[in-house]
């Protein structure tokens, strides 16, 4: 199974543990990736402050056009913002051929064109629907032995299109966690927004969102929170100290990427492959205990 991998800017920086763990974990499942050569940033969810809507669409269409010129594989976009930005262009040009014309007029300025033939997929989508839980289970040699994990879905990985999971009761991440031997704890705030891209400039307002999400996860028994988005991971992990200062709480719960848990359960190297040392709140202790070491 071959895909284009569009990892975006965050996964080279603050979300590095996502990319480092995603590659070996997916390769263990016989997935193959090709980079979109000379890709550009997706504009994330905040570019509207400086750019009009068409500019943001053209920005994303450039990546789609570059991929389309190279092959017909689906694009996997692990960052939720990247995913939503790209899939949005695809949806909108399908509904509106006039828009496709406009986009192409702009792309032509740089010698590119896009027909609209490339599919954009979320990493959870391909893991669940292309690989499947059975194949994932086969690869597990160190099951997580009932470790209680809160699978935090957030917003943009399922909303608004619901391409592969329910928009209000998503289950895919939980099924994937269970395939690794974890117990996916239900918690109502799993689809509540964490503040996303405006967290840093609106930190005074957004800390409460993080507090509510973590509180909910912990109250439902979670020992660990898993995510599939670099912004969720950043907001939930990095600001725990700030939340504690503001609300007098004592949060210290590790936030890991689903792909890090996959790498651990597949018996890959804890550092080199699972990138656990990249985490600021260390998850090793809890994971070792679950694995029975």
């Amino acid at each position: 199974m071959k895909y284009f991998l569009y990892w975006g800017c965050s996964l080279e920086g603050t979300g590095a543990n996502f990319l480092v763990s995603l590659k070996p974990a997916c390769e263990a499942l016989a997935m193959e990736f090709e980079e979109i050569e000379d890709w550009n940033c997706c504009g994330a969810s905040v570019s509207y402050a400086g750019a009009n809507d068409l500019s943001i669409k053209v920005l994303n269409a450039r990546n789609l056009a570059l991929a389309e010129a190279k092959g017909s594989y689906d694009i996997v976009a692990p960052c939720s913002s990247c995913y939503i930005q790209m899939i949005k262009v695809n949806h909108e040009i399908q509904e509106d051929p006039e828009l496709l014309k406009q986009v192409n007029e702009c792309l032509a300025e740089g010698g590119l064109s896009y027909k609209g033939g490339i599919k954009v997929r979320h990493i959870q989508d391909v893991l669940y629907n292309d690989v499947g839980v059975d194949k994932i289970k086969e690869k597990v040699i160190k099951p997580l032995n009932g470790l209680k994990v809160a699978g935090y879905v957030g917003c943009q990985s399922v909303r608004p299109y619901g391409e592969y999971d329910s928009v209000d009761k998503p289950v895919v991440q939980d099924r994937l966690l269970e395939a690794l031997g974890a117990e996916a704890v239900p918690f109502p705030k799993k689809i509540r927004c964490c503040g996303s891209g405006i967290f840093l400039p609106e930190i005074d307002y957004c800390l409460e969102l993080v507090k509510d999400i973590l509180e909910d996860a912990i109250n439902h028994g979670a020992e660990l929170v898993s995510t599939v988005c670099p912004m969720c991971a950043m907001n939930l992990e990095m600001y725990q100290g700030r939340v504690n200062e503001k609300y007098g709480t004592d949060f210290d719960i590790p936030i890991v990427y689903l792909t890090q848990l996959m790498a651990v359960a597949f018996g890959l190297d804890m550092k080199k492959d699972a990138a656990l040392n990249y985490n600021i709140i260390p998850p090793e202790g809890i994971l070792q205990a679950a694995l029975g070491h």
Binding site: A51, L54, V58, L59, E105, C106, E109
Partner: peptide, 10 residues
Amino acid sequence: MLDKAEKMGK
């Protein structure tokens, strides 16, 4: 491309 989109966009 972006300059064009800036001009063309609504």
